[in-house]
Design a protein around this nucleic acid. Sequence first.
DNA 1: CATCTAATTAGATGATAATCGAATTCAATT
DNA 2: AATTGAATTCGATTATCATCTAATTAGATG
Lengths: 193, 193
Amino acid sequence: MQLNRLVSFYKTMGDPTRIRIVFLLAKGPLHGQAIAGKLGLTPPTISHHLNKLREINLVYQRRDKNTVYFYLNESVLKHQSGVLAKLADKEEVKKMEEQNLESQKVIENFFTRDGKLKNIPAQRKKKLMVFEHLIKGLKMGKKYEEKELNEYIKQYHEDYATIRREFIINHYMYRENGIYELNPPEMWAKNEG
Amino acid sequence: MQLNRLVSFYKTMGDPTRIRIVFLLAKGPLHGQAIAGKLGLTPPTISHHLNKLREINLVYQRRDKNTVYFYLNESVLKHQSGVLAKLADKEEVKKMEEQNLESQKVIENFFTRDGKLKNIPAQRKKKLMVFEHLIKGLKMGKKYEEKELNEYIKQYHEDYATIRREFIINHYMYRENGIYELNPPEMWAKNEG
DNA sequence: CATCTAATTAGATGATAATCGAATTCAATT
DNA sequence: AATTGAATTCGATTATCATCTAATTAGATG
């Protein structure tokens, strides 16, 4: 499920310029001006598209002096390839639906009517479902101060420290210099390859 | 390659309503009104989206009395899943590029400057490349009278009968009651599974 | 600090497309 | 032939978005 995420992926890929960028990066990293040159477009346009591609985690970047190199994130492609393959298989579709229902049930059980988390499930599977529900309010690509993240978690449950730690352990987020950020879904514990 | 085809696929999938339709049909065929009902949209809107989905061969339909049932074409999903998987693999990308170059070369060898086909290659692989080039001027979903198809082929080569026959043999097209129509690319000889 | 280079943001423009109500087609049944 | 039921087409409305130029930011280097 995560319908929005799917739609975003396809919407982003559904542009000739972006597909061409993806094909270019599939052969190896490039910097912005190189892409602009190869495609005959202006740097602002490339910047615009790279932004979109970054939003779906299809590219990431590394800086070297003044130039920024853009890399293709192959794991996202593999993930989406898997989704398509499953969609082509009735049995898999059925399984997906069942999982959705199951997760819905768990959410209903562990949250109160006004959206508070009653307690953290002991069973790992259920725990992950709860965490995935919690992070829905966080924005991909946004950097969170620890304090800000604590406040966010406190909306749901007072023991923000435990939950924050679990976010890291299960790869929903990562921390760098005290700054927290969401990981792309391929990295989440549930999907760990 | 076939960049346009890729882009069309993604552009079409990049809409929440259409994704939802695809998920619905993944569980089994449905008729238009049923889809409209389940999605809370009007029949014209559904019709619009089914048109788009038909354009990329993702759905086909069968009529039963007055109601038309729409089916998901799983082979397209499998095909696209494969494309994504290849894109995630540098080696495969390299292969794709080489194939493109090779095919370009063959086209240059077998066609004159003004676009006429000199002769039909004897080697099967090259022959298929030539045919794929020829059908680029035909429109997916359009129905062609035999005469019309002959005329089209004659632009390129006088022996339209042989070529027309080859189109069928290699599953680029199919014939029904003397009417010819393009097959989706997954069915072409090159991609035969 | 001044300057250079690369990247990004802002704002404008033009094109595309999702959705709906109304009108129309198409096939089946009376 | 007339009627019904479903699907499609038409036209209008609204929203989104790719692209550009111009202006700005951000690092790196002299």
